[in-house]
Amino acid sequence: MTDLFGDEPQSSRARRSSARLRQAKRRAQRRRNFISFVVMLVALALLVGGGWVLVRPLLDGNEQVSEEPTDYPGPGTGEVQVVIEEGASGGEMASVLLEADVVASRTAFINAFNANPDAAGIQPGTHVLAQQMRAEDAVAVMADGSTLSDTRITIPEQWRATQIYDRVAQRLDVDVSEVEEAADAVAADYLPDVAGGEMEGWLAASTYNVHPDDTATDVLEGMVDRTIELLDSMDVPAADRQDVLIKASIVEAEVIRDDERARVALVIENRLDNCSGDGRLGMDSTVAYGLGITLGEALTQERLREDTPYNTRLNPGLPPGPISSPSQGSIEAVLAPAAGDLCYFVSDLETGESLFAATLEEHNENRETINNRNSNDEG
């Protein structure tokens, strides 16, 4: 009996021990797999959360914000002025309006901004709005322009300083003498030294938003700033800026068709290099400016012989200053004139075409061609 049922055989005990060992290993492996899975989930959550923190500022103002917006019921009370800067995004506008308590949250304004197809037309400047408005209403009234309290002043290319002063006085509802006094102060204290204290040519042709509390001095300084910004963007050296504006103002006055600017700029350079033999520009636009008349007025022989500093038919070289506010296109033409030996041009006022020539003989033939063409048209 002892031999049959006593101690368990060695092989049976070994098998059970091996089975328990395998089970223990499987349990340990499952624990390791579970821990690895939890670590992976945590890492993924951290990655997604960190990515959202980085991406969300880039989307601000251009996406539908997901959280529940806080909004005022409207219609709003009182009145407040807010200033929207040039190029402001929807998110930036939202911050300005939230600070002024026009809207209850940035979220509400951004969602309303994105939902209104006219919102992109909101103009920079000073807007007068009620406080505690519904965001949708704030976007709508800003987009239709009814809240904009700024005065808009548009200065066309080729306008002279005297014309600009008249326009500023009209828009600010002040006497022109007040604008002229402001111009004297700006010329003395604000203009770059290279301008020689003369405002002509430094009042950039553009459209300006004038805030309700702006003075004539503020407006004129803004025009000078815009000219400087334009010249800075074109990398024009400070010492060359007056000459560039003089040449560009002549191009502006003489050109009828935009595609001829670079060739007129070339003629100016070649005339200054003495291609005509006398170093004179011979530009009627400068003569007219020196006489205080428009280029459209008749330049009689008597007027052409009148010796002013701007009479480039009599005096070699550039005139002492610009003759108007040039456009960006004319400045670009001066900085990159056409290539060649062109020395003369004559314009057909009927067609707007200019005929260019390298020699005086060719120039006279061009003048005859235009005269005959116009005579035949009249006949």
Rank of each mutant, 00 (worst) to 15 (best):
M1I: 15
D3R: 15
G6M: 11
E8N: 13
E8S: 15
R16D: 09
A24T: 10
K25T: 13
R32T: 05
S36K: 10
G49R: 08
G50D: 06
W52I: 14
V53Q: 12
L54S: 14
L59F: 03
N62K: 15
V65F: 10
Q81F: 14
V82P: 00
I84S: 01
E92K: 02
S95M: 14
S95F: 14
L97S: 02
V103L: 09
A104N: 11
S105N: 09
F113Q: 02
N116S: 12
P117R: 05
I122R: 04
L129I: 02
M133W: 02
R134K: 07
R134C: 15
E136F: 15
A138F: 00
A138G: 08
V139D: 03
A140M: 10
M142C: 04
S146F: 06
T147E: 05
T147H: 03
S149E: 12
R152K: 15
I155T: 01
T162K: 15
I164E: 06
V168D: 05
V179H: 01
E180N: 15
E181Y: 07
A183R: 15
V186P: 07
A187D: 03
A187W: 15
D193E: 14
E198W: 06
M199C: 04
G201K: 12
Y208V: 04
N209F: 12
D214M: 04
D214W: 13
T215W: 00
T215S: 11
T215P: 01
A216P: 03
L220G: 12
M223S: 08
R226H: 08
R226G: 08
R226E: 07
I228T: 07
I228A: 15
I228N: 12
D232W: 05
V236L: 07
R241Y: 03
V244E: 00
L245T: 08
I246H: 02
I246E: 01
I250K: 01
V251L: 05
E254W: 04
V255C: 06
D258Q: 15
D259N: 11
D259Q: 10
R263W: 09
V264L: 04
I268P: 13
R271E: 02
D273Y: 12
C275H: 02
G277M: 06
R280Q: 13
L281I: 07
L281N: 10
G282N: 07
G282M: 04
V287E: 05
A288I: 08
I293A: 13
G296F: 05
A298E: 08
L314Q: 04
P319C: 05
P322L: 00
I323L: 01
G329Y: 11
I331A: 14
E332S: 05
A333H: 01
A338N: 09
G340K: 13
D341L: 09
C343S: 06
S347H: 06
D348R: 05
E350N: 09
E353D: 12
A358V: 11
H363V: 09
E365D: 09
N366A: 01
R367V: 14
D377L: 14
